[in-house]
Design a protein around this nucleic acid. Structure first.
Length: 791
DNA sequence: GCCAACGTTGGC
DNA sequence: GCCAACGTTGGC
């Protein structure tokens, strides 16, 4: 290990791939560029004037660390731009790791350090870590990256860089780039051409699904051939994986490579310490709920091998991610010592705000109600008692840093403070702290401080799994994200899920379909569903503004915070849509628009507003879904029936319309059918009740107040029967704007009857009439008939 | 402040 | 092994 460390220090560009290097030892069919031959290595950082200058700024603590690692003096320092592969537990850095998201965040933590010291790390240069790889030809480069976090930690990814700059991430991509080159003998992982058939390297048969009942994020370590076990796999399927350790007095056995555990045993010395720990079942302090066997929790013990230190122990302890066995010692260490590679984002109530001062449960909020139903839920603090301006808990002696909140408020910032402690909050206990990534809900979830759990939740948080978008499995193929995908011929730069499949509830707002349209319309973000885009830049704000934002944020994220509790945040409802309808009123053109309407027109509006008539039918039908997205997603519910091609054609027209300038406040959406629907967003428009529906064949129909415009209407005469282009649509909309809605029989005629006010139209009402008319000829005839009848 | 780009990670 | 796509950030 020390030899490897020294080698790493000499060749900082090569990312830590100790395991691979060990594997490669002795392999000489093709000389690896990662050999010890310095001539084949990329230049040391000191060769780069820029980097050399930066290295000269390495703070003393870094130098000290290196000395402690026993690295020869005078040797070029390890590339401290690279993530520390073997980070120690420097408490000084722990406090800086709070902003990090994962173990991979060590890089960010380090970057954070640089900011504090007055310099900033540049974004990882594309050249970093690349080594020349002539095996594939002149100019080719190769890079190995070891995953530094997540359940697949330790897994190694190999990338290649073509002379043209093509980044290759898989054999398939390599074959694409190297068209015409026979890669059957090429071993992608090692980057070597081997003789004979390349043995399949598939791992064990997939059995993950059998285990995955707790969380879909719990991918099995074993599945990847790394030898790690899921907790469930231990307890349910492979309880005797280490049968030699079943006796308490027996010492653990050294791990062999076949188990793969060595990959997770970074400390060989500890591995050699064949210590055995027999554990009583922990109660409140146990790291996780004991895996069940036949529904009974903690009914038996297993002998496990700690994935961190390699010792065997008896018990049912697993690491924070609940994927690998973790001995109590390592577990306690991971809990008590905030490793810089491990995210540490504890937030504590301020003790001063309204929420903190509120000592009485409201009894009305969901948390209080849950508490009445379930004792477990009682641990959730009353929502009215939540701190609205939590403070990040910080280790003593750490540096004051302002952090941006993530996933909660795109602009909010919080200052760290060394002065505020838990004791300042009257009701605060350690369990009240909460990972801030869980949306400031200090008492949310299971009161867990399990950052890794939150981290995994967060990565899955972008999908509620229940909305139509989440359930949709088919890419639209036409949105910008789809077009970017390699399968659609894209360059894979955006790497985002189809816009129509972005979770309506939890996707980041800028990824949602109408983000594009919203931008075109100038819609303000808060009116749209989805989560605000997080900001990760450190900045400061005035306390007043911060407080305001925090309060607003609490309101906004309240439901979001309770994903686990309430299953799902409540989507926008009709009232929200009413707001949306009001959105266009902020448009600059609106004041110049002539909206003078007859009094009875307003009367209509008043009446119809009670029935939600301004919302299209589908918007009324679905109380729980945001109307636009709901309908868009409904397209894919029955892709076979609806016809994918037709749907795509409509989508193309939709995109064409959204890239076109439509008559003011007209807006195109996709609805069930599929149908393309054009609506007038302004209630004050004469066309507020008018909708244009275009079917997949581009035939269209105009409805007014949900009633179809009769085919004999002259409007149809001046437009083609099919609206295949945006131009056709725009032309129709412009024509519509020349009309007003027939007002039907005057209400005063009916008031004489002393009955309920009922608007009346002729059965053949034209609905749309010229602006110089008040009612259509048919209604006028009916009116005259009624007058004649009364006389 | 936004977003294109891409490193990274989870899932199949 | 491969791919989808999440999360982050440098550059604008």
């Amino acid at each position: 290990m020390s030899e490897e460390a020294a080698g790493e220090s000499k060749h900082p560009a090569s990312e830590a791939v100790e395991e691979e290097e060990e594997e490669d030892k002795g392999e000489d069919t093709v000389e690896s560029p990662k050999t010890d031959n310095p001539s084949e290595e990329p230049p040391a950082p000191s060769d780069d004037p820029k980097e050399a200058a930066e290295i000269s700024l390495v703070p003393p603590v870094e130098a000290k660390e290196e000395e402690e690692e026993g690295k020869p003096a005078g040797e070029p320092p390890m590339d401290w731009f690279e993530p520390l592969e073997d980070d120690d537990d420097d408490p000084d850095e722990e406090s800086l790791a709070g902003e990090t998201e994962s173990i991979a965040g060590s890089e960010r933590a380090t970057r954070h350090l640089y900011q504090i010291y007055g310099y900033r790390r540049k974004r990882a240069h594309p050249e970093e870590g690349w080594v020349e790889w002539p095996v594939l030809g002149q100019g080719w480069k190769r890079k190995e990256v070891v995953r530094r976090s997540g359940s697949s930690i330790g897994q190694k990814d190999v990338y290649y860089l073509s002379p043209r700059g093509d980044r290759v991430r898989s054999r398939v991509e390599l074959a694409t780039v190297l068209q015409g080159t026979d890669l059957t003998q090429f071993e992608y992982k090692s980057g070597k051409f081997v003789e004979g058939e390349i043995p399949p390297v598939r791992g064990r048969p997939r059995t993950k699904k059998r285990y995955r009942d707790r969380s879909s994020s719990e991918s099995s370590w074993m599945d990847r051939g790394d030898g790690a076990e899921t907790p469930d796999s231990h307890h349910r399927l492979t309880p005797n994986i280490t049968p030699r350790n079943l006796h308490s007095n027996q010492t653990s056995v050294s791990l062999n490579s076949s188990t793969g555990e060595s990959k997770q045993s970074p400390n060989s010395e500890e591995k050699q310490s064949e210590e055995k720990i027999r554990l009583p079942f922990p109660s409140s302090s146990r790291p996780l709920s004991l895996p069940s066997i036949k529904g009974e929790f903690g009914s038996e013990e297993s002998t496990l091998i700690c994935a961190k230190c390699g010792i065997s122990f008896t018990g049912t302890w697993y690491d924070k991610q609940r994927k690998r066995p973790c001995c109590p010692s390592c577990w306690a260490t991971s809990k008590s010592i905030e490793h810089p590679l491990i995210r540490f984002r504890k937030w504590i109530p301020c003790g001063q705000c309204v929420g903190c001062h509120n000592a009485i449960d409201c009894g009305q909020c969901a948390n209080c109600k849950h508490g009445l139903q379930s004792p477990e839920a009682r641990k959730r603090l009353c929502r009215k008692r939540r701190c609205i301006c939590p403070i990040r808990k910080q280790s003593p002696g750490s540096v004051n840093v302002t952090y941006k909140r993530s996933f909660v408020d795109p602009v909010d910032t919080y200052e760290d403070s060394n002065d505020v402690t838990e004791s300042q909050h009257p009701s605060l206990k350690s369990s009240d702290t909460e990972n801030f990534s869980a949306n400031v809900d200090l008492d949310d979830d299971d009161m867990s401080t399990d950052d890794d759990d939150d981290w995994h939740k967060k990565r899955k948080r972008r999908s509620c799994g229940e909305c139509k978008a989440c359930l949709c499995r088919k890419d639209c193929g036409v949105c910008d994200f789809c077009i970017d995908k390699p399968k659609f011929g894209g360059s894979n730069k955006k790497r985002q899920k189809c816009r129509l499949r972005q979770c309506q509830r939890q996707a980041m707002r800028h990824l949602l379909p109408f983000q594009m349209a919203g931008a075109e319309l100038g819609l303000d973000a808060p009116l749209l569903p989805g989560r605000p885009r997080p900001h990760y830049t450190y900045s400061r704000k005035s306390s007043l503004k911060r407080s305001q934002d925090q309060q607003a944020d609490m309101d906004y994220t309240d439901d979001d915070d309770d994903d686990d509790e309430d299953s799902n945040p409540q989507p926008l409802n009709h009232s929200d849509f009413g707001v949306r309808n009001g959105v266009p009123d902020r448009f600059p053109h609106i004041s110049n628009h002539n909206y003078s309407q007859p009094d009875h027109q307003s009367q209509w509006d008043t009446e119809k507003s009670h029935t939600g008539r301004n919302a299209p039918k589908h918007m009324e039908d679905d109380e729980d879904e945001f109307p636009m997205i709901t309908q868009i997603f409904s397209l894919a519910e029955n892709p076979v029936e609806s016809g994918v091609d037709l749907e795509n054609q409509l989508m193309k027209l939709l995109h064409s319309l959204r890239s076109s300038v439509l008559p003011i406040l007209w807006y195109a959406i996709m609805v069930e059918g599929p149908q393309l629907q054009l609506i007038q967003c302004s209630k004050q428009s004469n066309m507020a009740d008018t909708i244009v529906l275009i079917d997949p064949g581009f035939c269209y129909q105009v409805t007014v107040q949900k009633q179809p415009l009769l085919p004999i209407h002259p409007l149809y005469d001046i437009h083609p029967s099919r609206l295949g282009t945006a131009t056709d649509v725009v032309s129709l909309l412009l024509s519509l704007e020349r009309y007003v809605v027939c007002q039907g029989l005057p209400t005063k005629q009916l008031l004489f009857d002393k009955g309920p006010i009922v608007l009346e139209r002729a059965a053949t009402c034209d609905f749309l009439i010229k602006k110089n008319e008040r009612i259509c000829a048919c209604c006028k005839a009916l009116q005259e008939l009624q007058i004649h009848h009364r006389e």
